[in-house]
Simulated scan of single mutants.
Amino acid sequence: MEEKLIAPCGMNCGVCVNHLAMVNDIRKQGFRRKYCPGCLPRGENCTFMKDSCDLLGKGLVRFCTECPDYPCRRLKALDKRYRTKYHMSMLENLECIREHGMEAFLEKEEEKWRCPGCGGTISCHNGLCLHCDLDKLRRKQTYRWDD
């Protein structure tokens, strides 16, 4: 996991299905997936929050925890959706970074999302390793956790 893949909202872009699709270059294996290098690497301060937050949109804060309105209504809603659907919490990520530092957070994430089969990375969006589980994805292109 890389620090540059942690978005200001707390999203770990390193476990995003579109980032992992790019890393594993699954188009070469017949998949039609959007590729994404991550919010910060592509010059987007935060895809989720930039339109509703001037501080993020202008790149004035590194993390939402630096904002006087933290956690705002929009971040709480985003966090609820991700906790419910994708087995991750932006707010927990941000709190872990604030309390334990980036290095400890990245180590925790590395362990949490490590594929037991190949040691690669599991996607938060579908629970699949795009190295080991491509057959599941091939059978059901819109695969979600436990489908």
Results as ranks from 00 to 15, higher is better:
M90F: 12
T65M: 06
N93V: 01
D51Q: 09
M49A: 11
M90A: 12
R81P: 00
N45E: 12
P37A: 14
V23L: 14
G43K: 07
I97M: 12
M22W: 08
C53N: 11
Y86F: 15
F63P: 06
N93I: 02
K28S: 11
E92D: 11
N45V: 05
Q29S: 13
R83Y: 03
G57V: 04
S89Y: 03
D54G: 09
L60R: 14
K58F: 02
V23F: 06
S52R: 12
R62K: 15
Y82C: 04
D51W: 07
D69C: 08
L40A: 10
E103R: 10
R74E: 04
R33T: 01
M90Y: 08
A104S: 11
E66W: 02
P41W: 10
M88H: 13
T84C: 02
E107N: 13
L106V: 15
H100Y: 14
D25K: 08
K28H: 03
G38N: 15
L78F: 03
K85M: 11
M90L: 15
F63D: 07
K58G: 04
M90K: 09
L56N: 07
C64V: 10
C64H: 06
Y70P: 00
P71N: 05
I26D: 12
M102E: 05
F105S: 10
C53F: 02
T84Y: 06
L91T: 04
G43T: 07
V23I: 11
H87W: 07
P41V: 10
K58L: 13
L55W: 05
E107P: 07
T84R: 15
